[in-house]
């Protein structure tokens, strides 16, 4: 199961949960599982403003990116640059 670190804002909306284990083969499944568990996260998880770091690689448009059973996933604000 992927280990998911929600970050401050998602964690706040999830009632204080910060780190959870989620069975998912890719980011799409991961987000669906999170929404099922925390429906209130749906708008933020669907936002373009959220990036996903998978095992250290930040992916701004994560959708079908595969996850390993031991992947560590962080949700972060999407940063682009100047």
């Amino acid at each position: 199961m992927a280990r998911v670190v929600l970050g401050h804002e998602l964690g706040r909306l999830a009632g204080g949960d910060k780190t959870i284990d989620v069975p998912a083969r890719n980011v799409r499944e991961l987000k669906a599982a999170l929404v099922e568990r925390y429906p209130q996260l749906a708008p933020l998880l669907a936002s373009d403003g959220l990036a996903v770091a998978i095992d250290g690689d930040i992916v701004p448009d994560a959708f079908l990116e595969p996850l390993r059973p031991d992947s560590e996933v962080f949700f972060l604000p999407a940063i682009r640059g100047g």
Partner: peptide, 9 residues
């Protein structure tokens, strides 16, 4: 409506 088109949301 917020989206990423430019350098940020």
């Amino acid at each position: 409506e917020e989206a990423f088109v430019g350098e940020g949301p």
